[in-house]
């Protein structure tokens, strides 16, 4: 049962990931990315990482992909195709990625046998309460400091994003005013 689910999910992930890098319409790419991320969220649930699957669906699919779709809507006309990439570039991409895959494959074939894979996680290990107990623990094993740092980072990037996105017109106005004054 789990093997069948794994095969279905991995085929889904790889199929939609291929669509993301090949489709000419960017909006279709973003939707394919969404489907691929949904597939991997299913895979996390299969691997007992329930909280990560929830974060994947809520933040990645609900946040990041929606961000991307916003950017697409703001910058692209409906139905506009991307410029097709040149043939030598496709060749370079294929050579590079197949070399990387051969490297991964060889590495795993050589060294993976020495990794002991005896322990399996249980459903409690990735559950929300277990994750929360470690994430908000102020003791030596707790991860409260990285958690707080991430929240500060999020605030800083949002402020920085606003500044970058609106600095343009302001700076231009200031420039033209100062030039007029001169």
């Amino acid at each position: 049962m789990i093997d069948t689910l794994f095969i279905i999910l991995s085929l889904m992930i790889i199929f939609f990931a291929t669509l993301v890098v090949t489709l000419p319409n960017i909006l279709h790419c973003a939707l394919a990315l969404m489907a691929s991320l949904f597939g991997s969220a299913g895979l996390y649930i299969l691997l007992n990482a329930e909280m990560t699957a929830l974060a994947q669906v809520a933040v990645y699919i609900g946040g990041v992909v929606i961000f991307i779709i916003f950017a697409i809507f703001l910058t692209t006309r409906m139905g506009e195709k991307t410029t097709p990439s040149s043939l030598p570039k496709i060749g370079w991409g294929l050579v590079l990625s197949s070399f990387a895959f051969a490297g991964f494959y060889g590495f795993y074939a050589k060294y993976l046998n020495s990794v002991s894979t005896t322990g399996y996680s249980t459903a409690e290990d990735g559950s929300m309460s277990a994750v929360g107990k470690i994430l908000l623990n102020t003791g030596s094993e707790g991860l409260i400091i990285p958690f707080e740092i991430v929240s500060v980072l999020l605030l800083m990037t949002v402020i920085g994003a606003v500044v970058i996105a609106r600095a343009e017109t302001k700076a231009l106005n200031c420039d033209s005013e100062s030039q007029e004054n001169i």
Partner: peptide, 10 residues
């Protein structure tokens, strides 16, 4: 690894 290489190709 397949996913990573697809991303690299893209």
């Amino acid at each position: 690894a397949v996913n990573f290489c697809l991303g690299m190709y893209g």
